[in-house]
């Protein structure tokens, strides 16, 4: 399992080191890996969207991690990632099976803009109560008002087949969330006050995440997964500065360092 994570992370660095969102992606690998290996989503049913659970990536910055994880697990071809975030590439922020075709049938929804996925997830959950929907959101994303509209709706309609997963890394592009709009430190209480059952876990511990995913709750479930943005290369935050750490366009020298750090993690 540890080896799987390492392989996926290597893949992420390979494809994302020249442009775009390396750090957001490195922070959620364990989360996405746990999700795709726990939920009702397998080789037999993944092409039939109406016959399986769905994973909505609401924080689109970790799209790279999603594609790498899916590719590692054999749901999409790694070739898709050639030219990621570049003009000749197929994948940027958003890609979706209707736009991208059969080859990305495993990718459920795309927006590229924050504050959309949870609302759509609520609709999906309402449409088919027998299947589960998992929405991966960022903590900074909760600065969008539409997220709270969605939470209200989820509670009101008791959408227990929907799981909100908050990837809490305390960071947004420009700074720590606490220095801009603090939707991180108190998010547990905030979401609880909206009427959801909140579970907490270490977002890098697969067993903990899986336990949370399986746990039954009285109210619709929200899992707060504490993560480290850019896990494995977090030491570069100070060197690169907040924005460059997020966008992570690295020099050849830095790419080598990051790669080594991840291999030796």
């Amino acid at each position: 399992m540890v080896n799987d994570i390492k392989e996926i992370k290597k893949m992420i660095v390979q494809h994302g080191c020249h442009s775009g969102h390396l750090t957001s992606s490195l922070g959620v690998v364990e989360l996405l890996y746990s999700l795709y290996t726990t939920i009702n989503f397998n080789q037999k049913n993944f092409k039939n969207i109406n016959d399986r659970d769905m994973v909505i990536i609401s924080k689109e910055h970790c799209r790279l991690a999603q594609i790498c994880t899916l590719s590692y697990l054999g749901y999409v071809d790694e070739k898709l990632l050639d030219g990621y975030m570049r003009e000749d590439g197929k994948v940027g922020h958003d890609m979706y099976n209707i736009v991208g075709g059969e080859e990305i049938a495993a990718v459920d929804y795309a927006s590229g803009s924050l504050g959309h996925g949870l609302n759509v997830g609520a609709g999906l959950a309402m449409a088919k109560p027998e299947h589960n929907i998992y929405v991966v959101c960022g903590d900074g994303e909760f600065q969008e008002g539409s997220m709270w509209e969605a939470l209200l709706f989820i509670k009101q309609h008791n959408l227990k087949n929907l799981t909100v997963i908050i990837d809490r890394n305390y960071l947004q592009i420009d700074n720590y969330t606490k220095n801009i709009l603090d939707t991180s430190s108190n998010i547990e209480k905030m979401v609880q006050d909206f009427g959801l059952s909140v579970l907490k876990c270490n977002g890098h511990n697969i067993d903990e995440i899986k336990k949370c995913l399986k746990e039954q709750t009285n109210e619709p479930k929200c899992i707060i997964a504490d993560t480290i943005k850019g896990k494995g290369m977090e030491f570069m935050l100070e060197e690169l500065g907040f924005a460059m750490f997020h966008h992570s366009m690295l020099s050849e020298k830095d790419i080598k360092r990051v790669y080594e750090a991840i291999v030796n993690e």
Partner: peptide, 23 residues
Amino acid sequence: IINVGISEQNAVGIASGLALRGK
């Protein structure tokens, strides 16, 4: 029949979600 509440953005999102599941 769902009264989504005074939340237009949410309403469009919810409707899209329903539609993507065949409604």
